[in-house]
């Protein structure tokens, strides 16, 4: 037995597979099989109790004419409007920290702090903070800014931007740290030369920082874009449950809602499949564009 293992380990493919085996086994059972099952369920009508009933493409036809689906997709796309702020905000902060400001280490540490908080904690916190009679509005009123007091999370006009700003806040530290690492690799002489030429802060940002860190900006943009489709669920869940009305109803929340409150796991899985295709499309497109730039 041992001899055979050794011989197997001698060939590269077999050895690699032995090294890969535990990981692949777990991934197969707990990641691939569920995706395959989700695909199967998307072609059924299933209330969770009795056996799923095969319905073919009926769920997908229903999705095409489902106003709630289109509302959710629209919301997902509206979030992308905040992409510039989301992508460039951390860059600007990183540039400021990188500029040699006294206390840089401390600020870096503090701005990263929220990144360790769980979405459940963040959601619960902002839910309390942003209530009509909550701390933020009380503060605004006490300093004479009562005109700015809002029903942040329950007014359809403010709720989506508020929620997106919370996402941005929660990921700000991560983005800043990533950009700082990229900035550390930019040749400092470039800046010195630009300064000698009399370039101001904004020009240096545009002409040196952005081009020199472009790969990182791309990475962060893709990361953020995929996140808006895949990781916002816990925030929606703890902050608004998609409300008021459908104002913050997003696709991954729809999957959950259609399954556990709508009572049809088949239809929910179909929405999930559409979401999966969408995310894969976004990733694939981004990947393709990056490859092309590289070539």
């Amino acid at each position: 037995m041992k001899g055979m293992l050794q011989r197997l380990a001698g060939s590269t493919v077999a050895a690699s597979l032995l090294f890969l085996m535990p990981a692949l086994l777990v991934l197969f059972l707990f990641r691939l099989v569920p995706i395959e099952q989700a695909f199967y369920l998307s072609l059924t009508s299933w209330n969770g109790g009795t056996d799923p009933v095969w319905v073919g493409l009926a769920n997908f036809e229903r999705i095409a004419g489902d106003p709630v689906f289109w509302r959710a997709l629209t919301n997902n796309l509206l979030i992308l409007l905040f992409l510039p702020l989301w992508v460039l905000g951390p860059l600007v902060i990183a540039v400021i920290i990188h500029s040699g400001v006294p206390g840089a280490k401390f600020f870096r540490l503090m701005i990263f702090l929220p990144a360790v908080l769980s979405p459940v904690v963040i959601g619960a916190y902002f839910n309390v903070l942003l209530k009509y009679k909550g701390p933020l509005n009380v503060f605004l009123r006490s300093v004479g800014l009562e005109g700015f007091a809002r029903q942040w999370l329950t007014d359809p006009a403010t709720v989506l931007p508020t929620m997106v700003l919370i996402f941005i806040w929660a990921t700000l530290g991560i983005g800043t740290i990533i950009y700082l690492a990229a900035l550390a690799q930019v040749n400092a002489e470039l800046y010195e030369a630009a300064e000698l030429d009399g370039a101001n802060w904004l020009q240096r940002l545009r002409d040196i920082t952005v081009p020199e860190t472009w790969r990182t900006i791309e990475f962060w943009a893709i990361f953020v874009m995929v996140s808006t489709f895949t990781t916002v669920f816990p925030y929606v869940y703890t902050l608004t449950r998609g409300g008021p009305g459908y104002s913050t109803y997003l696709l991954d929340y729809y999957v959950y809602d259609a399954a556990f409150f709508g009572g049809n796991f088949g239809y929910a899985s179909a929405v999930g499949m559409v979401l999966l295709v969408l995310v894969t499309g976004v990733c694939g497109l981004a990947f393709f564009l990056l490859r092309r730039r590289q070539a």
């Binding site: 008021p244 459908y246 109803y249 049809n264």
Partner: peptide
């Protein structure tokens, strides 16, 4: 599912 839709739509109507 109709109840949950009603709750959401009624919020939209109020707003």
């Amino acid at each position: 599912d109709v109840v949950f839709e009603w709750m959401r739509l009624f919020q939209d109507v109020i707003a």
